[in-house]
Protein backbone atom coordinates (compact mmCIF):
# COMPACT_ATOMS: atom_id res chain seq x y z
CA UNK A 1 0.00 0.00 0.00
CA UNK A 2 1.26 3.43 -0.77
CA UNK A 3 -0.84 5.81 1.21
CA UNK A 4 1.36 8.67 2.26
CA UNK A 5 1.34 10.91 5.32
CA UNK A 6 3.04 14.24 4.91
CA UNK A 7 3.87 16.22 8.04
CA UNK A 8 6.11 19.19 7.47
CA UNK A 9 6.48 21.36 10.57
CA UNK A 10 8.89 23.77 9.03
CA UNK A 11 10.84 24.26 5.85
CA UNK A 12 12.86 27.45 5.66
CA UNK A 13 15.47 28.16 3.01
CA UNK A 14 18.83 29.24 4.47
CA UNK A 15 18.62 32.74 3.00
CA UNK A 16 14.89 33.29 3.64
CA UNK A 17 13.48 35.20 6.62
CA UNK A 18 10.21 33.29 6.86
CA UNK A 19 9.38 29.63 6.27
CA UNK A 20 8.13 28.54 2.86
CA UNK A 21 6.19 25.65 4.40
CA UNK A 22 4.81 25.55 7.96
CA UNK A 23 2.59 22.98 9.67
CA UNK A 24 1.54 21.28 6.49
CA UNK A 25 -0.32 18.03 6.97
CA UNK A 26 -1.56 16.04 3.99
CA UNK A 27 -2.65 12.45 3.67
CA UNK A 28 -2.74 10.79 0.28
CA UNK A 29 -4.64 7.59 -0.30
CA UNK A 30 -3.29 4.73 -2.29
CA UNK A 31 -3.83 5.06 -6.04
CA UNK A 32 -5.44 8.45 -5.63
CA UNK A 33 -4.99 11.21 -8.20
CA UNK A 34 -4.47 14.44 -6.28
CA UNK A 35 -4.03 17.89 -7.73
CA UNK A 36 -2.28 20.54 -5.69
CA UNK A 37 -3.51 23.98 -6.70
CA UNK A 38 -1.86 27.16 -5.50
CA UNK A 39 -0.29 30.41 -6.65
CA UNK A 40 3.15 30.37 -8.29
CA UNK A 41 6.02 30.50 -5.86
CA UNK A 42 3.98 29.13 -2.96
CA UNK A 43 6.38 26.23 -2.46
CA UNK A 44 4.75 23.45 -4.43
CA UNK A 45 8.00 22.43 -6.10
CA UNK A 46 9.71 22.49 -2.71
CA UNK A 47 7.06 20.11 -1.41
CA UNK A 48 7.56 17.70 -4.31
CA UNK A 49 11.34 17.82 -3.85
CA UNK A 50 10.92 16.93 -0.19
CA UNK A 51 8.64 14.00 -1.04
CA UNK A 52 11.07 12.84 -3.74
CA UNK A 53 13.90 12.87 -1.20
CA UNK A 54 15.86 15.53 -3.10
CA UNK A 55 15.53 18.03 -0.25
CA UNK A 56 16.24 16.70 3.23
CA UNK A 57 16.75 20.04 4.91
CA UNK A 58 13.37 20.37 6.67
CA UNK A 59 11.69 19.63 9.96
CA UNK A 60 9.03 16.93 9.67
CA UNK A 61 8.47 13.51 8.19
CA UNK A 62 7.07 11.72 5.19
CA UNK A 63 5.52 8.36 6.05
CA UNK A 64 4.82 5.90 3.30
CA UNK A 65 2.38 3.14 4.20
CA UNK A 66 3.86 0.54 6.53
CA UNK A 67 6.99 -0.01 4.54
CA UNK A 68 10.33 1.24 5.71
CA UNK A 69 11.98 1.41 2.32
CA UNK A 70 11.31 4.58 0.37
CA UNK A 71 8.70 4.09 -2.39
CA UNK A 72 9.63 3.96 -6.05
CA UNK A 73 9.03 7.51 -7.19
CA UNK A 74 8.54 8.77 -10.72
CA UNK A 75 9.13 12.49 -10.93
CA UNK A 76 8.02 14.53 -13.91
CA UNK A 77 9.76 17.86 -13.53
CA UNK A 78 8.58 21.22 -14.79
CA UNK A 79 11.30 21.06 -17.43
CA UNK A 80 11.72 17.65 -19.04
CA UNK A 81 15.33 17.29 -17.73
CA UNK A 82 16.41 14.85 -20.40
CA UNK A 83 20.11 14.16 -20.89
CA UNK A 84 20.82 15.98 -24.18
CA UNK A 85 23.72 13.63 -25.02
CA UNK A 86 21.60 10.49 -24.84
CA UNK A 87 18.86 9.50 -27.25
CA UNK A 88 15.20 9.37 -26.26
CA UNK A 89 15.38 5.64 -25.72
CA UNK A 90 18.66 5.79 -23.81
CA UNK A 91 17.17 8.44 -21.52
CA UNK A 92 14.33 6.07 -20.65
CA UNK A 93 16.61 3.02 -20.30
CA UNK A 94 18.94 4.87 -17.92
CA UNK A 95 16.09 5.56 -15.52
CA UNK A 96 15.06 1.90 -15.63
CA UNK A 97 18.38 0.50 -14.48
CA UNK A 98 19.24 -3.20 -14.71
CA UNK A 99 15.82 -4.78 -14.56
CA UNK A 100 14.36 -3.31 -17.68
CA UNK A 101 12.19 -4.88 -20.31
CA UNK A 102 12.29 -3.54 -23.84
CA UNK A 103 8.60 -4.40 -24.25
CA UNK A 104 7.54 -1.89 -21.60
CA UNK A 105 9.50 0.87 -23.29
CA UNK A 106 8.17 -0.08 -26.72
CA UNK A 107 4.59 -0.06 -25.46
CA UNK A 108 4.99 3.32 -23.78
CA UNK A 109 6.67 4.84 -26.83
CA UNK A 110 3.76 3.56 -28.88
CA UNK A 111 1.14 5.09 -26.58
CA UNK A 112 2.96 8.41 -26.49
CA UNK A 113 3.47 8.31 -30.28
CA UNK A 114 7.22 8.52 -30.04
CA UNK A 115 8.25 5.24 -31.65
CA UNK A 116 9.60 7.11 -34.68
CA UNK A 117 11.64 9.46 -32.51
CA UNK A 118 13.17 6.95 -30.11
CA UNK A 119 16.71 7.18 -31.50
CA UNK A 120 16.71 10.95 -31.79
CA UNK A 121 18.65 13.27 -29.46
CA UNK A 122 16.42 15.49 -27.27
CA UNK A 123 17.65 18.73 -28.86
CA UNK A 124 15.79 17.81 -32.01
CA UNK A 125 12.48 17.29 -30.20
CA UNK A 126 9.76 19.87 -29.71
CA UNK A 127 8.91 20.80 -26.13
CA UNK A 128 5.73 18.73 -26.28
CA UNK A 129 7.68 15.66 -27.40
CA UNK A 130 10.32 16.17 -24.69
CA UNK A 131 7.54 16.38 -22.11
CA UNK A 132 6.11 13.12 -23.36
CA UNK A 133 9.53 11.47 -23.09
CA UNK A 134 9.82 12.60 -19.49
CA UNK A 135 6.36 11.15 -18.83
CA UNK A 136 7.41 7.83 -20.36
CA UNK A 137 10.57 7.85 -18.22
CA UNK A 138 8.47 8.28 -15.08
CA UNK A 139 5.94 5.59 -16.07
CA UNK A 140 8.55 3.10 -17.28
CA UNK A 141 9.93 2.54 -13.78
CA UNK A 142 6.42 1.49 -12.72
CA UNK A 143 6.32 3.96 -9.83
CA UNK A 144 4.33 3.62 -6.63
CA UNK A 145 4.14 7.38 -6.41
CA UNK A 146 4.16 9.77 -9.33
CA UNK A 147 5.04 13.41 -8.78
CA UNK A 148 4.20 15.88 -11.52
CA UNK A 149 5.26 19.51 -11.38
CA UNK A 150 3.16 21.58 -13.79
CA UNK A 151 4.20 19.27 -16.59
CA UNK A 152 1.96 20.87 -19.21
CA UNK A 153 2.92 24.50 -18.71
CA UNK A 154 3.77 26.28 -21.97
CA UNK A 155 2.26 23.56 -24.14
CA UNK A 156 -0.40 24.75 -26.56
CA UNK A 157 -3.95 23.80 -25.60
CA UNK A 158 -4.50 20.91 -28.05
CA UNK A 159 -1.13 19.30 -27.22
CA UNK A 160 -1.69 19.72 -23.49
CA UNK A 161 -5.11 18.12 -23.83
CA UNK A 162 -3.74 15.23 -25.83
CA UNK A 163 -0.91 14.55 -23.37
CA UNK A 164 -3.36 14.85 -20.46
CA UNK A 165 -5.60 12.19 -21.97
CA UNK A 166 -2.61 9.91 -22.52
CA UNK A 167 -1.56 10.45 -18.93
CA UNK A 168 -4.95 9.43 -17.55
CA UNK A 169 -5.01 6.42 -19.85
CA UNK A 170 -1.64 5.24 -18.54
CA UNK A 171 -2.64 5.91 -14.96
CA UNK A 172 -5.84 3.88 -15.36
CA UNK A 173 -3.88 0.99 -16.86
CA UNK A 174 -1.41 0.99 -13.99
CA UNK A 175 -2.85 2.78 -10.97
CA UNK A 176 -0.57 4.49 -8.48
CA UNK A 177 -0.68 7.53 -6.25
CA UNK A 178 -0.32 10.75 -8.25
CA UNK A 179 0.53 14.17 -6.91
CA UNK A 180 -0.02 16.69 -9.67
CA UNK A 181 0.93 20.33 -9.17
CA UNK A 182 -0.82 22.95 -11.26
CA UNK A 183 -2.26 26.43 -11.04
CA UNK A 184 -4.79 25.78 -13.77
CA UNK A 185 -8.10 24.96 -12.09
CA UNK A 186 -9.71 23.53 -15.23
CA UNK A 187 -6.80 21.15 -15.69
CA UNK A 188 -6.97 20.14 -12.04
CA UNK A 189 -10.70 19.38 -12.22
CA UNK A 190 -10.23 17.37 -15.42
CA UNK A 191 -7.60 15.16 -13.77
CA UNK A 192 -8.08 14.89 -10.03
CA UNK A 193 -9.97 12.65 -7.64
CA UNK A 194 -9.30 15.26 -5.01
CA UNK A 195 -8.17 18.90 -5.14
CA UNK A 196 -6.00 20.40 -2.43
CA UNK A 197 -5.77 24.19 -2.40
CA UNK A 198 -2.59 25.69 -1.01
CA UNK A 199 -1.85 29.20 0.21
CA UNK A 200 1.45 31.02 -0.20
CA UNK A 201 4.21 31.83 2.28
CA UNK A 202 4.14 29.85 4.40
CA UNK A 203 2.37 27.16 2.42
CA UNK A 204 -0.66 25.65 4.10
CA UNK A 205 -3.60 23.58 2.96
CA UNK A 206 -6.62 25.88 2.71
CA UNK A 207 -9.28 23.44 1.56
CA UNK A 208 -9.70 19.98 0.13
CA UNK A 209 -12.42 19.18 -2.39
CA UNK A 210 -13.41 15.85 -3.88
CA UNK A 211 -14.18 15.97 -7.58
CA UNK A 212 -17.30 13.83 -8.10
CA UNK A 213 -17.26 13.91 -11.91
CA UNK A 214 -17.08 10.44 -13.43
CA UNK A 215 -13.89 9.58 -15.38
CA UNK A 216 -15.92 9.14 -18.55
CA UNK A 217 -17.23 12.71 -18.20
CA UNK A 218 -13.83 14.34 -17.74
CA UNK A 219 -13.44 15.08 -21.44
CA UNK A 220 -16.65 17.11 -21.38
CA UNK A 221 -15.58 20.73 -21.09
CA UNK A 222 -19.06 21.92 -20.15
CA UNK A 223 -19.16 19.61 -17.15
CA UNK A 224 -15.69 20.78 -16.07
CA UNK A 225 -16.63 24.43 -16.49
CA UNK A 226 -19.90 24.15 -14.56
CA UNK A 227 -18.11 22.38 -11.71
CA UNK A 228 -15.52 25.15 -11.69
CA UNK A 229 -18.19 27.87 -11.46
CA UNK A 230 -19.94 26.03 -8.68
CA UNK A 231 -16.66 25.52 -6.84
CA UNK A 232 -15.73 29.20 -6.98
CA UNK A 233 -19.21 30.15 -5.74
CA UNK A 234 -19.23 27.73 -2.81
CA UNK A 235 -15.62 28.30 -1.81
CA UNK A 236 -14.84 32.01 -2.24
CA UNK A 237 -11.61 31.56 -0.25
CA UNK A 238 -9.91 29.73 -3.12
CA UNK A 239 -10.37 32.60 -5.60
CA UNK A 240 -7.32 34.44 -4.36
CA UNK A 241 -5.20 31.30 -4.76
CA UNK A 242 -5.69 31.07 -8.50
Amino acid sequence: MTDIQININNKTYPTATQPSIANLKLSLNSNEFICLVGPSGCGKTTLLNIIAGLDNDYDGEILVGQQHTPPKIGYIFQNPRLLPWRTVRENIELALGEHQSPDVIDALLEVMQLTQAQHVYPERLSLGMSRRVSIIRAFAIDPEVLLMDEPFVSLDAPTARQVRELLVKLWQQRPHTVLFVTHDLREAIALADRLIFLSASPMQAVSEIIVPIARSERGNELAIESFRQQLLQNHPEIKQLL
Binding site: A52, G53, L54, I73, Y75, R81, L94, G97, R137
Partner: peptide, 8 residues
Protein backbone atom coordinates in the same frame (compact mmCIF):
# COMPACT_ATOMS: atom_id res chain seq x y z
CA UNK B 1 18.64 15.81 -9.08
CA UNK B 2 16.97 13.84 -11.85
CA UNK B 3 19.73 11.20 -11.65
CA UNK B 4 19.30 10.99 -7.88
CA UNK B 5 15.53 10.71 -8.11
CA UNK B 6 15.80 7.86 -10.62
CA UNK B 7 18.49 6.09 -8.55
CA UNK B 8 21.25 6.26 -11.16
Amino acid sequence: DMARCYHF
